[in-house]
């Protein structure tokens, strides 16, 4: 039963208030993309044992989408941040490095 802090309304939200939304920081591919690019955009998913970036919606709260950095092995939450960004903020990445030195996730480290 996770608790995630909604970066918009500041509430420590119960998992039952939240809706999970899968991998974060996906780049959309539309018309003009190759079959492979489009397949990977829709289906290829990071599925790490460890640090993961994912999307959540505070569905039964303020309704906002946000991102969480979380460990899939321990469920430790390294931080949450607004969804309107294409990469994890520096503070979040540093917070992860402090706890999981040498981590990588996609192109981020």
């Amino acid at each position: 039963m996770l608790i995630l802090t909604c970066p918009y309304c500041g509430v420590d939200a119960e998992e039952t208030e939240l809706a999970p939304g899968g991998e974060a920081h996906l780049k959309r591919f539309g018309p003009g993309a190759s079959d492979e690019e489009f397949r990977d955009y829709l289906f290829a998913r990071e599925n790490p044992k460890g640090v993961h970036f994912e999307r959540w919606r505070h569905a039964h709260g303020c309704g906002k989408w946000f991102h969480a950095a979380r460990c899939t092995m321990t469920l430790e939450v390294f931080g949450t941040y607004p969804a309107q960004t294409t990469k994890p903020p520096k503070a979040i990445r540093e917070a992860i490095t402090a706890k999981r030195p040498g981590w990588t996730w996609r192109e981020f480290e």
Partner: peptide, 13 residues
């Protein structure tokens, strides 16, 4: 409605 919000908040914000 959630679908609209998702695109508005996470792609065309």
């Amino acid at each position: 409605h959630a679908h609209m919000e998702e695109w508005l908040q996470t792609e065309w914000w």
